[in-house]
Every structure is written in C-alpha cells, then in structure tokens.
Amino acid sequence: MGLQRNVSLSTGLRYKGHSPFWAYILHRIGGAGMALFITIHIFSTFADQQGWKIGGLVNNLYTSVPFQIFILFCVLFHAINGLRITILDFFPQKLMPYYRQIIYVQLALFVLVFGFAAVSVVATALGRM
C-alpha cells in the first residue's frame, strides 16, 4: 500500500521549511516543466520534419519571450540546484552542516545566470522587432 495523505494543499504551502523546502518545490516544478517541454518539443520537431503543419505551429510557441524565460528558469534552476544536491551528497560530512548557507550561494549564482539569460532573451527579441 502507498502512503495516505491527510494534509490539504493550503496547509502544505504554509509549511515553514524555508529555503530548502522552496528549493525542493522549485526543483520539482523545473524538472516537470522540462520533461513536459522536451517531450512536446521532440514530437513537434519530428512532425515538422515530416512536413505536418501542427509541428511548425507548436514550435512557434517556443520562440515567444515569456515561454523562453519560463523554460530558462526551469533549466537553470534545476541545473544549479541539482549541482548543489550532487556536491552536498558526495561530501556530506564536510558540507551538510552549512546546507542553508550553501543555498544562499546557489541563489546568488542562479540570479546572476538567469538574469543574464533573461536579459539576453529580451534583447534578442527587441533586436528582431
């Protein structure tokens, strides 16, 4: 038997896990978002290559600015958070005592890389207008 759940969504969201909890939630959102995007993207590119119109229509959605920023958020957060998890898991005794501080380092890195990527997307879109 699987687990039974007695906690509502609103109670769950008020859980005071702070940064590690939000990192965990965003890691899942990013991973699920990427899995969904890559599945649709590969099928639509395949359709496009076969000359089916639906493929080109779906692929055009990906070039819109809001979508690119969303998928960049998914990819970059998941990649940077995943690297933190991997490093912490490989050196648990040395690094686990500092796991909260390490999340702040990770967030600073993420804001830097994601900010640069988002600016690049917007600048490219403005340049093509």
Binding site: M1, G2, L3, Q4, R5, R28, G31, A35, I38
Partner: peptide, 24 residues
C-alpha cells in the same frame, strides 16, 4: 542521459500523488 534521468524523476514525482500499487 537527460531522458533516462528525466523519466526517473517524473516517475518519482508522480509516485507521491499515486497511493495505489496499480496506479504506480
């Protein structure tokens, strides 16, 4: 690599919302 990593991740996420063995 990404596909096998991803399909495992999706299964782990969905398992949290699927209590029954046959659903899993």
């Amino acid at each position: 690599t990404a596909g096998s990593h991803g399909v495992h991740g999706v299964i782990v996420i969905l398992d949290d919302y699927l209590p029954k063995d046959n659903q899993r």
